[in-house]
Amino acid sequence: MASTTTLEFEKPIVELESKIEEMKALADTLDIQPQIDDLERQIEILRSEIYRNLTRWQRVQIARHPDRPYTLDYITHCFTDFIELHGDRAYRDDPAIVAGLATLNGRHVMVVGHQKGRDTKSNLYRNFGMPNPEGYRKAYRLFETAEKFGLPVICLLDTPGAFPGLEAEERGQAEAIARNLKLMSQLKTPIVIVVIGEGASGGALGIGIGNRVLMLENAWYSVIAPESCSSILWRSWDYKEQAAEALRLGATDLIKVKVIDRIVPEPVGGAHRDPVAMFQTMVETLTEELDALCKLSGETLVKERRAKFYDMGVWTEA
């Protein structure tokens, strides 16, 4: 897929790609097919080398890539019969969290996710994917609806954080998140979480407690964004790369400390390079997870979900 944004470490690839394009334009008049084939082989090697050795900070950049599929892209391409449901029944509808009923491979589900915008206008509308309390309260309401009608819940996490604004505080941002954490710990229906992009702190976790927590290969999930971590601990915005390393915010890091259960592979170069393949993987993965979870009773689901989170943390006892 043609990308509108080229990340720094992708430049060598893009340069080769454009060279091939130029040569292909000349291929009708000149016999240069062998050279083109050779370049294409080179590009494949380069690609697999670059993407195999990405630093954590580079992955953060992929997770934030403006062409990366967002929640509504997954909903449109992985699910059918989606009906978006709006509002928290108390204050307003929050466009930074979308939610609704849908069908996945013949199974009816409730799907909830953070939603970013792709341009200035849609980003203002979506508040850059940063929910206000009413977003979490909409999710709360629909989690209860899902339980009532025996529907499994799928949550897609992709937020730079809960919105740190004046009105958000006035309306109880902390309380809204806290209540979701408690409700999600007692919901007698299967919950599958997928971190699809950015999993920034409480804003992400606010819809993030599940029986299974999955994470896309290039997504990040941590207590704080690397830039903010840099500004607090290093007192400068310049240490984001070090902060990303120190935070161990990648999927391979988090599976080791059991914060996540499964890594979902992305197409080479990231989900945005081949969204169709990504959607296909997502459908297969979610179906597999739900097939297993839907066999369990509500009590078992709650018990196992709690046990999994009780187990989180590392400490010593002398």
Binding site: L181, S201, G202, S222, V223, I224, V259, Y310, M312, G313
Partner: peptide, 18 residues
């Protein structure tokens, strides 16, 4: 949350609420 334990600190929110 304590930044030096990163995602593990974040998960204490989930653990205590659960």
């Amino acid at each position: 949350a304590r930044m030096q334990e990163a995602a593990l600190s974040l998960m204490q929110m989930a653990k205590t609420s659960a």
